[in-house]
Protein backbone atom coordinates (compact mmCIF):
# COMPACT_ATOMS: atom_id res chain seq x y z
CA UNK A 1 0.00 0.00 0.00
CA UNK A 2 2.95 2.29 0.49
CA UNK A 3 4.06 2.14 -3.14
CA UNK A 4 3.76 5.31 -5.20
CA UNK A 5 1.72 5.37 -8.40
CA UNK A 6 5.05 5.46 -10.23
CA UNK A 7 6.27 2.26 -8.60
CA UNK A 8 2.90 0.59 -9.19
CA UNK A 9 3.05 1.56 -12.87
CA UNK A 10 6.60 0.18 -13.17
CA UNK A 11 5.49 -3.09 -11.60
CA UNK A 12 2.38 -3.41 -13.75
CA UNK A 13 0.05 -3.41 -10.74
CA UNK A 14 -3.02 -2.30 -12.67
CA UNK A 15 -5.62 -3.17 -10.01
CA UNK A 16 -3.85 -1.18 -7.30
CA UNK A 17 -3.13 1.64 -9.70
CA UNK A 18 -6.81 1.75 -10.62
CA UNK A 19 -7.81 2.03 -6.94
CA UNK A 20 -5.54 5.04 -6.48
CA UNK A 21 -6.57 6.74 -9.71
CA UNK A 22 -10.29 6.22 -9.07
CA UNK A 23 -9.88 7.99 -5.73
CA UNK A 24 -7.76 10.82 -7.14
CA UNK A 25 -7.50 11.20 -10.90
CA UNK A 26 -4.78 13.84 -10.65
CA UNK A 27 -2.42 10.92 -9.92
CA UNK A 28 -2.69 9.96 -13.59
CA UNK A 29 -0.52 12.91 -14.56
CA UNK A 30 1.55 13.11 -11.37
CA UNK A 31 5.22 13.76 -12.10
CA UNK A 32 7.92 12.47 -9.76
CA UNK A 33 10.95 14.53 -8.75
CA UNK A 34 12.52 14.01 -12.18
CA UNK A 35 9.32 14.77 -14.00
CA UNK A 36 8.44 11.19 -14.87
CA UNK A 37 4.74 10.29 -15.09
CA UNK A 38 3.25 6.86 -14.28
CA UNK A 39 3.00 6.30 -18.07
CA UNK A 40 6.74 6.91 -18.45
CA UNK A 41 7.53 4.46 -15.64
CA UNK A 42 5.30 1.80 -17.23
CA UNK A 43 6.86 2.46 -20.66
CA UNK A 44 10.40 2.29 -19.26
CA UNK A 45 9.77 -1.10 -17.64
CA UNK A 46 7.95 -2.67 -20.58
CA UNK A 47 4.55 -2.92 -18.91
CA UNK A 48 2.39 -3.03 -22.05
CA UNK A 49 -0.97 -3.64 -20.35
CA UNK A 50 -0.32 -0.83 -17.87
CA UNK A 51 0.57 1.56 -20.69
CA UNK A 52 -2.71 0.68 -22.43
CA UNK A 53 -4.65 1.08 -19.17
CA UNK A 54 -3.13 4.50 -18.43
CA UNK A 55 -3.80 5.72 -21.98
CA UNK A 56 -7.42 4.52 -21.75
CA UNK A 57 -7.75 6.46 -18.50
CA UNK A 58 -6.58 9.55 -20.36
CA UNK A 59 -2.89 9.85 -19.48
CA UNK A 60 -1.12 12.33 -21.77
CA UNK A 61 1.60 10.47 -23.72
CA UNK A 62 3.22 13.70 -24.93
CA UNK A 63 4.46 14.93 -21.56
CA UNK A 64 8.22 15.41 -21.31
CA UNK A 65 10.19 14.92 -18.09
CA UNK A 66 12.62 17.54 -16.72
CA UNK A 67 15.41 16.58 -19.07
CA UNK A 68 13.02 16.13 -21.97
CA UNK A 69 12.76 12.36 -21.66
CA UNK A 70 9.56 10.98 -23.23
CA UNK A 71 7.57 7.78 -22.78
CA UNK A 72 8.53 6.98 -26.39
CA UNK A 73 12.26 7.44 -25.83
CA UNK A 74 12.12 5.26 -22.70
CA UNK A 75 10.20 2.49 -24.49
CA UNK A 76 12.58 2.72 -27.48
CA UNK A 77 15.61 2.49 -25.24
CA UNK A 78 14.22 -0.67 -23.64
CA UNK A 79 13.26 -2.22 -26.98
CA UNK A 80 9.57 -2.48 -26.11
CA UNK A 81 8.18 -2.42 -29.64
CA UNK A 82 4.55 -3.03 -28.62
CA UNK A 83 4.67 0.03 -26.39
CA UNK A 84 6.43 2.06 -29.09
CA UNK A 85 3.66 1.14 -31.53
CA UNK A 86 0.91 1.93 -29.01
CA UNK A 87 2.41 5.35 -28.26
CA UNK A 88 2.85 6.12 -31.96
CA UNK A 89 -0.85 5.33 -32.51
CA UNK A 90 -1.57 8.02 -29.92
CA UNK A 91 0.22 10.55 -32.10
CA UNK A 92 3.15 11.30 -29.84
CA UNK A 93 5.97 13.46 -31.22
CA UNK A 94 8.37 10.97 -32.81
CA UNK A 95 11.49 13.15 -32.95
CA UNK A 96 11.79 14.56 -29.43
CA UNK A 97 15.37 15.21 -28.37
CA UNK A 98 16.59 15.32 -24.79
CA UNK A 99 19.57 16.46 -22.66
CA UNK A 100 21.68 13.95 -24.61
CA UNK A 101 20.48 15.06 -28.02
CA UNK A 102 18.89 11.61 -27.95
CA UNK A 103 15.82 10.81 -30.04
CA UNK A 104 13.72 7.65 -29.73
CA UNK A 105 15.38 6.36 -32.92
CA UNK A 106 18.89 6.94 -31.56
CA UNK A 107 18.03 5.05 -28.36
CA UNK A 108 16.52 2.15 -30.31
CA UNK A 109 19.68 1.99 -32.46
CA UNK A 110 21.94 2.18 -29.42
CA UNK A 111 20.10 -0.69 -27.79
CA UNK A 112 20.24 -2.81 -30.97
CA UNK A 113 16.44 -3.06 -31.04
CA UNK A 114 15.83 -3.85 -34.72
CA UNK A 115 12.03 -4.08 -34.56
CA UNK A 116 11.80 -0.77 -32.72
CA UNK A 117 14.05 0.85 -35.30
CA UNK A 118 11.83 -0.49 -38.09
CA UNK A 119 8.66 0.77 -36.37
CA UNK A 120 10.11 4.23 -35.81
CA UNK A 121 11.41 4.49 -39.38
CA UNK A 122 8.07 3.25 -40.73
CA UNK A 123 6.37 6.07 -38.87
CA UNK A 124 8.72 8.69 -40.27
CA UNK A 125 11.43 9.09 -37.60
CA UNK A 126 14.09 11.57 -38.74
CA UNK A 127 17.29 9.79 -39.77
CA UNK A 128 19.29 12.99 -39.88
CA UNK A 129 18.96 14.02 -36.22
CA UNK A 130 22.28 13.55 -34.44
CA UNK A 131 23.00 13.06 -30.75
CA UNK A 132 25.08 15.73 -28.99
CA UNK A 133 28.04 13.40 -29.45
CA UNK A 134 27.69 13.87 -33.22
CA UNK A 135 26.36 10.43 -34.05
CA UNK A 136 23.51 10.00 -36.52
CA UNK A 137 21.49 6.79 -36.24
CA UNK A 138 23.54 5.25 -39.07
CA UNK A 139 26.89 6.37 -37.59
CA UNK A 140 25.87 4.84 -34.29
CA UNK A 141 24.77 1.51 -35.81
CA UNK A 142 28.09 1.27 -37.68
CA UNK A 143 30.18 2.32 -34.68
CA UNK A 144 28.48 -0.21 -32.40
CA UNK A 145 28.58 -3.00 -34.98
CA UNK A 146 24.81 -3.41 -34.93
CA UNK A 147 24.62 -4.92 -38.40
CA UNK A 148 20.92 -5.78 -38.45
CA UNK A 149 20.01 -2.26 -37.39
CA UNK A 150 22.35 -0.91 -40.05
CA UNK A 151 20.63 -3.13 -42.61
CA UNK A 152 17.17 -1.96 -41.47
CA UNK A 153 18.24 1.67 -41.96
CA UNK A 154 19.72 0.92 -45.38
CA UNK A 155 16.57 -0.91 -46.49
CA UNK A 156 14.47 2.01 -45.31
CA UNK A 157 16.60 4.52 -47.26
CA UNK A 158 16.41 2.39 -50.41
CA UNK A 159 12.63 2.27 -50.12
CA UNK A 160 12.31 6.02 -49.84
Amino acid sequence: DSLSVHQLAAQGEIAKLDEHICKDDSLLSKQDERGFTPLMWAAAFGEVATVTYLLEKGADPRVLARERESALSLASSGGYTDIVNTLLKHHVEINTYDWNGGTPLLYAVRGNHVKCVESLLGRGADLTMEADSGYSPMDLAVALGHKKVQQAIETHILNL
Binding site: M40, W41, L74, D98, N100, Y107, S133, Y135
Partner: peptide, 21 residues
Protein backbone atom coordinates in the same frame (compact mmCIF):
# COMPACT_ATOMS: atom_id res chain seq x y z
CA UNK B 1 8.77 -8.54 3.82
CA UNK B 2 10.85 -6.03 2.00
CA UNK B 3 9.35 -4.23 -0.94
CA UNK B 4 11.29 -4.44 -4.15
CA UNK B 5 11.46 -0.99 -5.65
CA UNK B 6 12.29 -0.19 -9.22
CA UNK B 7 14.96 2.41 -9.78
CA UNK B 8 14.08 5.55 -11.65
CA UNK B 9 13.96 5.21 -15.43
CA UNK B 10 17.04 6.48 -17.22
CA UNK B 11 18.38 6.82 -20.71
CA UNK B 12 21.96 5.99 -21.68
CA UNK B 13 24.50 8.48 -22.95
CA UNK B 14 24.89 8.33 -26.70
CA UNK B 15 28.66 8.39 -26.69
CA UNK B 16 31.24 5.72 -27.24
CA UNK B 17 34.16 7.53 -25.71
CA UNK B 18 35.32 8.16 -29.27
CA UNK B 19 35.47 11.39 -31.22
CA UNK B 20 32.22 12.05 -33.02
CA UNK B 21 32.31 11.20 -36.69
Amino acid sequence: TQLSLYTSPSLPNITLGLPAT
